[in-house]
């Protein structure tokens, strides 16, 4: 179910913002023309991801050489710096560790987040 979370132009071009969507805390990431949604709770110790930073993903180019992948932004938790790919919610170092991710699209200048129907039900209950 798509939920309107605001005017696209109000979001920084490379950044993120924590929002309340149907009672659920969500981090909305804008990376140029791409948009991503993540659950705003780090699976490590429960830190608020939205209080962290978003940056281009790290990429090893061999021992002693570090590069960045501009196409894969990562969200770095504001507590301990655990990092997750904004696109998938997957940890940058552990396949088995991930944050729930949500599809985001822009329609007529409005940012729409695909919120699971259970959020609305949980809120009504």
């Amino acid at each position: 179910m798509l939920v309107d979370v605001g005017e696209a132009s109000a979001f920084p071009e490379r950044g993120m913002r924590a929002l309340d969507v149907n009672g659920r805390r969500v981090v909305l990431v804008r990376w140029g023309e791409e948009w991503f949604g993540l659950y705003d709770r780090c699976p490590h110790q429960g830190g608020p991801l939205g209080q962290g930073v978003v940056l281009a993903g790290p990429r090893s180019e061999g021992v002693g050489r570090i590069g960045v992948d501009e196409r894969e932004p990562v969200v770095s938790c504001g507590w301990h710096g655990w990092q997750f790919y904004a696109r998938t919610g997957r940890s940058t170092w552990d396949e088995g560790c991930r944050v729930p991710s949500y599809r985001v699209e822009v329609r007529d200048g409005r940012v729409m987040l695909d919120a699971p129907p259970s959020w609305r039900l949980a809120r009504q209950a």
């Binding site: 830190g47 209080q51 930073v53 504001g78």
Partner: peptide, 10 residues
């Protein structure tokens, strides 16, 4: 530091 400071950002 990862975030430039030795504190939690919030």
């Amino acid at each position: 530091h990862l975030h430039g400071v030795n504190k939690r950002l919030d």
